[in-house]
């Protein structure tokens, strides 16, 4: 563990904004909320925040991106496209780091999705331990209030200085630039960091009443409780907001966009959501998840069970974005999971 003064860190960020070829992204306040956005100056950084509107997923899987460019002037020509902007992203909370780790597995699974992977490889992740929590978050219960890896550098606020944990050579390379101002942490400082990490785990208002490891079997057991799913999905708008803000939702649609000449254009993928009505509809009109309750259940099953079966991770990191953004307020995973847990023996 290293220690740097806050003003040194800010100086480093300004230096990177000024001279580094990479785009520097940081958490900033926007209206009364927080967002990941391009940093103009280090002083715009807000590292003491509750949660951002969108997770940093948007930098690796943009809302819209080109996969293929085509041209038909002299026969059909198609080229793969990946618009990679190398980036340094500053201020990622532990639950979002965990989500990125999970997405890395999804997109590295065969066949590899290089559109995602190349963007990831060209990014540096600077995490920050939480000092405050969102009202909707339950990261403490999901084991994602802190992480041991998944970052290149990890900051912990110690008043006038940051404790810095180094997660990779990409991270240590950054620190090289200010090596004269970096010192080893003292045993007391290390203790403080560990204490801060321990304390944040109890700061969450929302809680899961049981270990998340029990989710896969709980959800298997409650899959066919149709009344429960129907009752809870009753007010769902099928708007897909919970999908859009989720750091582990990665389903996508693919569409072609033609140039006005009709002789060239792009094939793009864009975010899609399993809560949207047409998500499982085929051209002939058959909809394989036609009912709101089926789609609603599908989302919870996917978070707590399906992706676990496939990749070994509980695909809910407890950020609370889904519930915080849900207009009819029916998307709180702790509410749903706890109700299922309490009702399982009935």
């Amino acid at each position: 563990m290293k220690i740097i003064k806050k003003n040194v860190f800010e100086g480093l960020v300004d230096e990177l904004i000024e001279n580094d070829e990479r785009e520097i992204i940081g958490v900033q306040s926007k209206d009364s909320k927080y967002v990941f956005d391009r940093l103009e100056k280090a002083e715009g950084l807000e590292l003491d925040y509750d949660v951002t509107i969108l997770p940093p997923k948007k930098y690796f899987m943009p809302q819209r991106e080109t996969l293929v460019e085509y041209e038909t002037r002299e026969g059909l020509e198609m080229e793969p496209v990946n618009e990679v902007i190398p980036r340094i992203i500053i201020g990622i909370h532990p639950y979002d780091l965990e989500a990125i780790k999970q997405m890395d597995k999804v997109f590295a699974d065969s066949p590899k999705d290089s559109n995602y992977l190349e963007k990831r490889e060209n990014s540096v992740l600077i995490g920050v331990n939480m000092q405050q929590t969102s009202d909707w978050s339950f990261a403490g219960s999901m084991g994602t209030a802190t992480v041991d890896d998944g970052y290149d550098l990890m900051l912990t606020d110690l008043g006038k200085k940051y404790a810095v944990e180094i997660g990779s050579s990409k991270g240590s390379d950054l620190l090289e630039k200010i090596s004269e101002d970096v010192r080893d942490a003292s045993p007391e400082e290390i203790d403080k960091v560990e204490k801060a990490k321990e304390e944040i785990k109890d700061e969450f208002d929302k809680e899961l009443d049981f270990s998340p490891q029990k989710l896969p079997s709980l959800l298997a057991d409650t899959y066919d409780q149709d009344d429960f799913w129907e009752e809870n999905a009753e007010d769902c708008y099928s708007c897909g907001t919970c999908n859009i803000v989720c750091p582990t939702c990665y389903c996508f649609d693919v569409q072609d966009f033609s140039d006005i000449s009709l002789e060239e254009g792009e094939r793009m993928r864009q975010w899609d959501g399993c809560m949207l009505e047409a998500f499982a509809e085929v051209a002939g009109g058959e909809n394989f998840r036609e009912e709101r309750a089926e789609r609603y259940r599908h989302r919870y099953m996917r978070k707590g069970r399906y992706l676990y079966n496939r990749f070994g991770d509980i695909a809910c990191v407890g950020c609370g974005r889904c519930s915080s953004q849900c207009v009819p307020d029916i998307a709180d995973p702790t509410d749903i999971f706890n109700k299922l847990w309490r009702g399982k023996d009935e």
């Binding site: 899959y223 389903c251 996508f252 993928r269 899609d272 998500f279 394989f288 099953m301 399906y306």
Partner: peptide, 23 residues
């Protein structure tokens, strides 16, 4: 079986079929 598909390679999520037993 027929399903909506966008990628064909197990990523886009559209063709997933579920049940109590798994997916």
């Amino acid at each position: 079986l027929e399903r909506r598909m966008k990628c064909g390679v197990g990523k886009c999520g559209h063709c997933q079929i579920n049940g109590k037993e798994g997916e």
